[in-house]
Write a protein that binds this DNA or RNA. Structure first.
Lengths: 153, 153
DNA sequence: CCCGAAGAGTTGCGTATTGAAACCATCATG
DNA sequence: CATGATGGTTTCAATACGCAACTCTTCGGG
């Protein structure tokens, strides 16, 4: 029985060859991506994250610590004074496409017709268009028109 | 077309207005997205999912049940005979952009330079280009050039 | 018809993670 | 110096998870 799983907390990847699995080893839990979402939306302080997500404070402590350890956020002294604040790193900001696609899936499938929800808009107040993978020629890609090439092949 | 009618845990959304939160209520756990990933990559049977992910069998039972209940996969009789198989629904297939962006983040940030990993390629064997949100005018969008418009405002 | 193997779970049980609430420490202000 | 805000830590019960053993059904031979 081939045991693939070895859990990321031991310093091991659960499936070392797969980038999807590695990313989920880092942020694939109930709260991490919501913390990232709020950081992208301007949250900086422990209390602000707690207020927005409603996460338990001990779990938030743990998540902020892990997100910091894994390089998604960094803790720095606020410009205004001597309080510390959490800010996204480049790697954390680079999760933007993940957050946006999660949001857009939710908009399409997790709301009844007519049910209201928050909307992501650009500088001009225009809703952000759907994000979808395309080939080099601009054609839309789907699970059926793509495949995973394993490392050894 | 099956709208995701039900229940994250006890029938309530953890943050009813936010599409990101709703999506994570449904698939924001350690395993669901990996099961979806493998379904996109051709897995159909309980045993095949178990072999690919390494997930514990009782947990896999639970996840397949929840993914079915929430309309990501459906169970149908295999065309070849009388065995049942799990197939992605349209809603499940529509998570493709999420899986791809998670994969691409991992490729950029979770591998050391030179470390090998599996690659997603199109029909011609070409790697899938980076997916990123753009505005209506084609400009790249970032957390700094977008904002969430709340329902009431 | 009987046996065995494979698929798909189910059950029991022990460990790990999570969550709610209370508790603590530091600063700033009145 | 009392009060409140920030940023946690501690405690402890409730879930979730992983492992292994067991069940049930469906073939496929012999």
């Amino acid at each position: 029985m081939p045991r693939i799983a070895a859990t990321a907390r031991d310093g091991e990847w659960s499936d070392p060859d797969c980038p999807v699995a590695r990313t989920l080893d880092l942020v694939g839990d109930r709260w991490s991506l919501l913390v990232i979402r709020d950081a992208m939306d301007g949250a900086r302080s422990f209390t602000e994250f707690q207020r927005r997500t409603g996460i338990a404070r001990n779990i938030l402590t743990d998540r902020l610590r892990k997100l910091t350890a894994h390089g998604f956020v960094a803790q720095r002294t606020a410009p205004s004074g001597r309080r510390r604040e959490y800010v996204l790193t480049d790697a954390g900001r680079d999760l933007f496409p993940v957050i946006v696609t999660l949001r857009q899936w939710g908009e399409r499938h997790a709301f009844a017709p007519g049910e209201t929800h928050s909307v992501l808009v650009d500088q001009h107040g225009e809703p952000v268009p759907d994000v979808s993978p395309t080939g080099g020629d601009g054609s839309l890609l789907t699970p059926d028109t793509t495949q995973v090439r394993k490392v050894g092949s």
